[in-house]
Amino acid sequence: MGFLIDSLRSAVALVVSLDPEMMEIVWVSVKVSGTSTLIAGILGIPLGFAIAFNDFRGKQILITVLNTLLALPTVVIGLFVYAFISRRGVLGMLGLLYTQKAMVIGQVILILPVVTVFTIAAVSRIDERYRKTALTLGADAWQTALAVAREARFGLVAAVVAAFGRVIAEVGISMMLGGNAKGFTRTMTTAMALEYDKGQFTLAVALGIVLLTLAFGMNLLFHFFQGRSRF
């Protein structure tokens, strides 16, 4: 018990002192996860809109498949992407393995269904009259989508927050595709796993505190934004 308390005390000191090694790991995590979330948002939000707005054969099956993909284990994605970008893979010549780009590819695959499904849910909940109103007032397809997106903004922000929360906390993809190289592909979660293996908990606990604070901060920001917007 004393050991745990000592680790926690040292970890807090590490966080408060903004330890350079810790900050480097945090930066890599935020950079990779932020990029993944941005790309998934750019692809997933329009995709969600397209699925929600259009009626086509197999729409329900597609939504069911996307819902199933929400539960996709990170190690499966890691393995799948590895098969393509490893030296023997079809994209091996690009030299992506054990790079931040590889991590981003895997993470985008992980959270694209999250953003898409959340967007479909957010847009479907929006009253159909918003779309009709925009159209009758002369809006084109893009302007109509923007008007609906504005009404669905809380749902869309929730989609992005959920996606970021999912990637910042994942370990399988980062480990398998990033390789946990110090200062380059070492993220908060892979570093925590490594420190645990080494039996050194101080940095692991410090990173855990940062991770939780980050998640809490994101949600706090979202709720603040929601509260301000609703007056």
Binding site: R129, Y130, T133
Partner: peptide, 12 residues
Amino acid sequence: VVMVDQHPILFT
């Protein structure tokens, strides 16, 4: 041509 619904909705 503009249409006003029976129960119009206003943007927030």
